[in-house]
Design a binder for these strands. Structure first.
Lengths: 336, 336
DNA sequence: CTGAAAGCGCTTACAG
DNA sequence: CTGAAAGCGCTTACAG
């Protein structure tokens, strides 16, 4: 392993100069820099990250915290963020909570992040009142994506969840639906916080805006994934209340709904219209009408915001857009 | 930030003793250890990773390299591996290639991994002849998952891809199909190496075993994802060759095939039977018959193998299993 | 623009 | 079982 002294000796300069030259600092003559660069290349020198970190105080790492990397939204945000981070010269430390409360607590209340990262990006991280102290004890810059709970001093990147849900439901209303079911995540889930509540509010707002009185019998909690969508839809059907459309809190839940409906011999959209939120990779494949949110863009913007904090505390709101596909149509009753 | 001296002072011992006590090393009396632990806890002491790394030579990090974190198989392997790694006290550095050849080269031929990790886990990493030197120059222990190309000295964890493909195709043959199309990834793709070839071999072996002569007109390359499955199936239909079943190299491609078939008014399984490989999360939802492979288990076993190398060079082969759902049935011709 | 030297905060032989 | 001291390989004031 060649060290900085080897390079210094080969280039005939001090280690301080090697350090400066290699990091592109000013205060090095062009001639010297070239000599150092040559020597370093020739020797295949790479500075020891541990040593640089200890001496320089910067880790060159960013911690990316995500509830479940297996979910479309999260993996898409992480992929985009990772690319931007690497481009900016940072390594990314992945913390996947796996939906476990224990992992969340460990991350927050153990030194898992202390001195390991220069900054933190938290995606859809639910933070309870007692967690804020832990986060601020980190004394780290950070950014939240699709938060969750805004962290004081950290910018946040997200969409307007109220509007997204409203758009989805208003689309159904526009088609003539009035009995619109809602399937959503459990309140205890990872997205349970503002996202959950906001999308619920959007649903209610749309209904009220059209003079439709929300019916609790049409709203059912499941999980946020496919299985949850199936279960919620089964429960809905079990209740026996009439409905002509389903609004799902996310596309994965919508896919679950689609599955459950088909199992019961119900056709989409002939018997039931279905709309989700996300624009999941598979949404075009199954013809799902949805409100698209820019997942990758949120990841990129989060990194950008983290690295050049122009909006210290502000929120970056990214646009969503309704994409009408084949899963929604006018209800049969209005056709009859 | 409290340092090791602070703890040493508070406990009335030397820093060497603090270091030993905190890391659970032997050669520390129980009484002293308790005193140190108390002091550390009281002061909220956490050892500086940079300093430990520099002094100790271990980074406590494992690099996880993956072609595309957004794909089902990869995110599932990573989730499981990440959990095991964190349990074992390692941080995970994520390297998502994003399907870019440039990222692959940068990772291999730059110091991206040098001195940053204690070990490497490469998932479905395509390695060309010229890459091996770069990998061995890393001088790091490693493991490959679903390789790809086996790396000398690194154990590998995977399934028997030949058998998986054979099982899928034999299932179709058992139902009476003889015109079985194959849609697969491009040879230039991430899984292009052994996985691609093995599954191709399995398909051919199954056909030959049944006395069916492979027809090149029935085999079409696409991408490995949904869009690729759509495109490949469109191409297949465009060719106008008769077929009653499709074997897809992975479930995501199968979902693409399903989409394309539906668009063309073809029903599954009435008009066309469809089988994939994976048992993707969404496979049950769409009733896809598939050969299940244990993705999470591969992630866990890889970590296990990496951390306690009992099989220095050997391959861990995990079992697959055919899961029959609604996407496969006897061909109509045999029913007529 | 360049160098000598201290220091970052640990771990590890080496003694005892 | 415990401690004094060197050393890990850089970066950073401080001089010049």
């Amino acid at each position: 392993m060649t060290r900085i002294d080897d390079v210094a000796r080969a280039a005939g300069v001090s280690t301080a100069t090697v350090s400066r030259a290699l990091r592109g600092l000013p205060m090095v003559s062009e001639k010297t820099r070239r000599r150092v660069l040559d020597a370093a290349a020739r020797l295949g020198y790479i500075a020891s990250p541990s040593a640089s970190r200890l001496a320089g105080g910067r880790t060159g790492c960013v911690g990316v915290v995500v509830p479940r990397i297996t979910r479309w939204f999260f993996s898409t945000v992480v992929e985009a963020a990772e690319e931007s981070l690497h481009e900016a010269g940072y390594d990314v430390l992945l913390f996947n909570l796996g939906g476990s409360e224990q992992a969340r607590l460990k991350l927050l209340h153990t030194g898992a992040l202390r001195q390991r990262v220069d900054a933190v990006m938290m995606i859809s991280m639910p933070l309870l009142a007692e967690d804020f102290a832990a986060v601020s004890r980190l004394e780290l810059p950070g950014v939240t994506v699709s938060s969750g709970t805004p962290v004081p001093g950290w910018p946040s990147v997200r969409i307007d969840d109220v509007a997204a849900a409203r758009d989805a439901v208003e689309h159904l209303i526009g088609l003539g639906h009035t009995r619109i079911a809602r399937i959503c995540g459990k309140s205890s889930d990872e997205l349970a916080f503002t996202t959950h509540v906001d999308r619920q509010d959007g649903y209610h707002a749309a209904l009220r805006g059209a003079g439709i009185r929300p019916d609790p019998a049409l709203e059912v909690e499941g999980a946020l994934d496919l299985a949850g969508g199936v279960a919620a839809t089964e429960e809905l059907l079990r209740r026996g209340v009439p409905f002509s459309a389903i609004y799902a809190i996310c596309d994965e839940a919508a896919m679950g709904a689609l599955t459950a409906l088909r199992r019961h011999g119900l056709r989409v959209p002939e018997d039931v219209s279905l709309v989700g939120i996300d624009d999941h990779d598979l949404a075009p494949a199954i013809g799902l009408t949805t409100v698209a949110q820019p997942a990758a863009e949120q990841g990129r913007r989060a990194v950008e915001t983290l690295l050049s904090p122009t909006v210290p505390d502000g929120a970056v709101l990214l646009p969503t857009r309704l994409i009408i596909r084949e899963s929604t149509a006018a209800p049969r009753s209005t056709l009859e």
